[in-house]
Amino acid sequence: MRRRGFLLAGLGATTLTLSPAPAGMHAASDGPPAHRLHAGSRLLFVSGQVPTDADGAAPEDFDAQCALAWDGVERQLAAAGMGLRHLVRVNVFLARAGDRGRERALRRARFGDCVRPSVGVIVTGIYDEDWRIEIEAIALA
């Protein structure tokens, strides 16, 4: 579809490399941050990864859709020299509340023994009615 082609063309990731903080700038003093940024840290913002194959088709099966969306996240991470262990925040958008438990189980299986990031799950309408999941993420290396 034309809309999908347009949307798929914009999917990707943006990397931000941090420089040393200016003199006089300090971290918050009320406790350590969950993920400390250091000079030279790289933040990767992965835009919404959708459950489509190379032809833009989405399978009907939720497990297959979930796998495609996570495959997209992992491709973006790999392109930046990162992996699942670098994820610090993930937002999962689901079209159906009934998919929450299955999504959690599939995500945990994919992560295995990796340190798990903070995850937000939002049940909402998604751009294409055939899609049951979309994933966006932030990674830190």
Results as ranks from 00 to 15, higher is better:
Ala21Cys: 07
Ala141Gln: 14
Leu44Asn: 00
Arg132Glu: 13
Pro51Ser: 02
Arg104His: 15
Arg2Phe: 14
Leu8Lys: 15
Val88Thr: 05
Leu16Pro: 03
Gly81Trp: 08
Gly56His: 00
Val46Met: 05
Ala21Lys: 09
Gly31Glu: 04
Ala34Cys: 04
Ala57Thr: 10
Ala57Trp: 13
Ala80Thr: 00
Thr124Asn: 14
Ala13Pro: 04
Ala95Phe: 10
Phe93Ser: 07
Phe93Tyr: 11
Phe62Ser: 00
Gln65Gly: 04
Ala9Met: 01
Ala54Gly: 15
Leu16Ile: 03
Leu37Gln: 07
Ala141Phe: 14
Pro32Phe: 12
Ala141Met: 12
Pro32Ser: 09
Ala78Asn: 02
Asp113Thr: 09
Ala34Ser: 03
Ser118Gly: 14
Trp131Cys: 13
Gly40Cys: 05
Ala78Trp: 05
Leu37Gly: 01
Pro117His: 08
Asn91Pro: 03
Ala27Gln: 15
His86Ile: 05
Ala13Phe: 06
His38Glu: 12
Asp113Val: 09
Thr124Trp: 12
Leu11Glu: 06
Ala137Val: 02
Phe93Lys: 07
Phe62Thr: 00
Asp113Cys: 09
Leu16Thr: 05
Ala27Trp: 13
Arg107Met: 12
Asp61Ile: 09
Ala64Gln: 13
Arg110Thr: 03
Ile122His: 15
Gln49Ala: 01
His86Arg: 04
Ser29Pro: 05
Pro59Trp: 02
Trp70Ala: 10
Gly120Ala: 15
Pro22Asp: 13
Val115Gly: 13
Ala13Met: 03
Leu77Asp: 00
Leu140Glu: 02
Gly40Met: 00
Asn91Met: 08
Val115Leu: 13
Thr52Gln: 05
Val50Tyr: 05
Ala141Cys: 15
Ala28Met: 04
Glu60His: 15
Pro51Gln: 02
Ala69His: 02
Arg4Phe: 09
Asp55Trp: 10
Gly48Lys: 12
Glu129Phe: 12
Leu18Trp: 08
Ala28Asp: 07
Gly120Ile: 09
Ser19Ala: 15
Arg42Asn: 01
Ala95Asn: 09
Ser29Met: 05
Leu84Phe: 03
Trp131Ala: 09
Leu37Met: 06
His26Lys: 15
Phe6Ala: 15
Pro117Phe: 11
Pro33Asp: 03
Gln65Lys: 03
Val88Arg: 07
Ala109Trp: 07
Cys66Trp: 02
Asn91Ile: 08
Ala78Ser: 04
Ala21Phe: 03
Leu84Gly: 02
Asp55Thr: 07
Leu37Pro: 08
Arg89Ser: 08
Thr15Val: 13
Pro117Leu: 09
Leu77Ala: 02
Phe111Tyr: 08
Asp61Glu: 14
His35Gln: 11
